[in-house]
Design a protein around this nucleic acid. Structure first.
Length: 593
RNA sequence: GGAGCAGUAGCUCAGCUGGUUAGAGUACAGCCCUGUCAAGGCUGGGGUCGCGGGUUCGACUCCCGUCUGCUCCGCCA
């Protein structure tokens, strides 16, 4: 049907007869001469229609935007002075000798070259939105990323193995998407939140190295970087420890960035403990491009006569921390008020600050509503530790450590962006030495920080059960520019340790058997030491393409309420369908017949 | 479950402290035009102001509710 892509035309094809297919990007009708920019996946080509060929010219006059055409013509140099340097094919044009309208098109609901169309409209007409070069480039980049990762893993001896989509609900973790069973009345499959247990079973099956580009489902509320269905690069290896898998995965990501973006990532990636990351950045996914850090000042505040600071300073679960912003003095009162409101989102009750007007003038060089509460010793300590200088603005958070970390961690990102302190480039790191458990205040029980199959970093079961609060796990997260792009762990590979982990989590013997009996059983039949990782492919593609939402690297994403504006899914089911599935609706919905 | 922002022409937006005929750009249609590439010129059509209720002599404008989209908190082992 065609022999060249529009976007591939160049001077080497001059005088050749080409056949192009594509969409009318734009038509410029000068009365006596008509130009049509024909667009396909690879780019644009200018097709010229001259009035001498009356029949062809008449057809070109009828053509409108987004018509689908097949054009036959001769490639020639553009006349002197009409070359378009903005266009990859701008040196040449095609003189049309034959035109075929493969399909007419209604006027599009929006203009493809409008970069400011609302997302609602774009999603409703996604098939048109995806024609835009920007979206074409993103999906092409995503395909390139996946292809490269597959090649790498294949080279390294990983097997691509599929796991079930219709599987068993899990008690821990995210809300499951449920699928009713027709053949088992009242019973349900769950769509996988991840193939976690299957990939572990594959290690027990002796597959040694597994990977899968796999869809995962979580029925939780959405964000710019979270969709109800998303794609993981899921990986598992046998007979390895943390060092091996981290090395292999680093190599993979380094090669990915080199080959796709020609970017050199550090070798090795820096590594940081969870504890250090929380202390310095208030988060376990620090954006190392922002040169701001939190500073602990608990000890300086424990004895001050200012309860807002002294109380959390003395609380074992409290934290008083400072965030020093060089040249932050320029921030207006309104901006500081805005930041106070911002940290309020995270539960902070206020945002104290000190302006450093003159670092050499001691107390007199400072300006702050809280100055009167602070003794000289505390002030000196703060200035020294935060490395404050003339012009600095020091923010303070004082509350439960969780609130201070979240509030100042988020403030650090916001100020970093607002003040344009974010450095160019890519800053990957590993975050390691996660706590094994965290206390769930609502449920009054220990919960896995990672998941219940993560190996604890302890010599024996007794140590695990005696120290749930301080026990670290063998988990590791890969973080890039403030995004968690991958996370994994060495897994528990012995049944007694797995049972102990369940016990700490308050999962009783009976429940463990019911929910995870198959896993506990499998562990008894010869399970190799193993571990793995899963990467969020959508997030990776988002970062690498410079998109600000994973929706921009997913062909057909869902909205924040998890609906598809293109197909109007989800929708009601017919009474007949529901009856077959043994389901009766509680609400007086109006199912179609 | 909660907070914020937005919803006016096909699209993107403006519309003052409430005032009688709701505008702009672009798209679209027609006419003119032989070198444009966001082509240009002239003319024209196009609106349940998201939806429902309330206040008022009068509501795009104020109030309440609701729906939709986005951002965020909670949630996401």
């Amino acid at each position: 049907m065609r022999n060249h892509y529009c976007g591939h035309l160049n001077e080497s094809l001059i005088d050749q007869n080409v056949i192009l297919c594509g969409w009318v990007n734009r038509r410029r009708d000068h009365g006596g001469v008509i130009f049509i920019d024909l667009r396909d996946r690879e780019g644009l080509a200018q097709v010229v229609f001259e009035p001498e060929a009356a029949e062809i010219f008449a057809m070109a006059e009828r053509v409108r935007n987004e018509y689908v055409l097949r054009i036959q013509g001769t490639v020639r140099h553009r006349p002197e002075g009409t070359v378009n340097p903005e266009l990859a094919t701008g040196q040449v044009e095609v003189v049309c000798q034959h035109i075929e309208i493969l399909n007419a098109a209604e006027t599009p609901p929006f203009q493809l070259d409008d970069s400011n169309v609302s997302e609602e409209i774009r999603l409703r007409y996604r098939y048109i939105d995806l024609r835009r070069p920007e979206m074409q480039a993103r999906l092409q980049l995503r395909a390139k990323i996946i292809t490269l990762l597959r090649h790498f893993l294949d080279e390294q001896g990983f097997l691509d193995i599929e796991t079930p989509m219709l599987t068993k609900a899990t008690p821990e973790g995210a809300r499951d998407y449920l699928v009713p069973s027709r053949t088992h009345p009242g019973q349900f499959f769950a769509l996988p939140q991840s193939p976690q247990l299957f990939k572990q079973l594959l290690m027990m099956s002796g597959m040694e190295r597994y990977y899968q580009v796999v869809r995962c489902f979580r029925d939780e509320d959405l964000r710019a970087d979270r969709q109800p269905e998303f794609t993981q690069l899921d990986i598992e290896m046998s007979f390895i420890d943390e060092t091996t898998i981290k090395n292999v995965m680093e190599s993979m990501i380094r090669r990915l960035f080199k080959e796709v973006l020609n970017e050199d990532l550090p070798n090795p990636f820096p590594s940081m403990s969870y504890e250090e990351s929380m202390r310095r950045f208030g988060t376990d996914k620090p954006d190392l491009r922002i040169p701001l850090e939190l500073t602990d000042v608990n000890d300086l505040m424990a004895d001050v006569e200012f309860n807002v600071f002294a109380k959390p300073a003395k609380d074992p679960d409290g934290r008083v921390a400072a965030l020093c912003v060089p040249n932050g003095k320029a921030l207006s009162r309104k901006q500081i008020d805005d930041y106070t409101g911002f940290v309020g989102i995270y539960g902070a009750k206020g945002l104290a600050y000190i302006k450093v007007n003159d670092i050499t003038a001691g107390r007199k060089g400072l300006q702050s509503p809280i100055l009167k509460f602070l003794p000289d010793q505390a002030i000196e300590g703060i200035l020294e530790r935060t490395k404050a200088d003339t012009g600095s603005l020091i923010f303070f958070g004082a509350d439960k450590a969780k609130i201070v970390n979240e509030a100042l961690g988020a403030l650090r990102l916001k100020i970093g962006n607002d003040l344009k302190l974010v450095q160019k480039g890519w800053k990957p790191l590993w975050v390691v030495d996660y706590p094994m458990f965290e206390w769930d205040e609502k449920e009054k029980r220990w919960a896995s920080l990672h998941h219940p199959f993560t190996a604890p970093n302890v010599p024996d079961i007794a140590t695990l059960e005696a120290n749930p609060k301080t026990c670290l796990s063998r988990a590791y997260d890969m973080v890039l520019n403030g995004n968690e792009i991958g996370g994994g762990s060495i897994r528990i590979h012995r049944p007694d340790m797995q049972s102990a982990a369940f016990r700490v989590l308050g999962i009783g013997e009976e429940e463990a058997q019911e929910k995870f009996g198959f896993l506990l059983e499998a562990l008894q039949y010869g399970c190799p030491p193993h571990g793995g990782i899963a990467f969020g492919l959508d997030r990776l593609a988002m970062l690498m393409s410079g998109a600000s939402s994973i929706r921009d690297v997913i062909a057909f994403p869902k909205t924040q309420t998890a609906s598809c504006l293109l197909t109007s899914a989800p929708s009601t089911a017919s009474q007949a369908q529901l009856r077959e599935l043994h389901i009766r609706l509680r609400t007086q919905g109006t199912p179609s017949t």
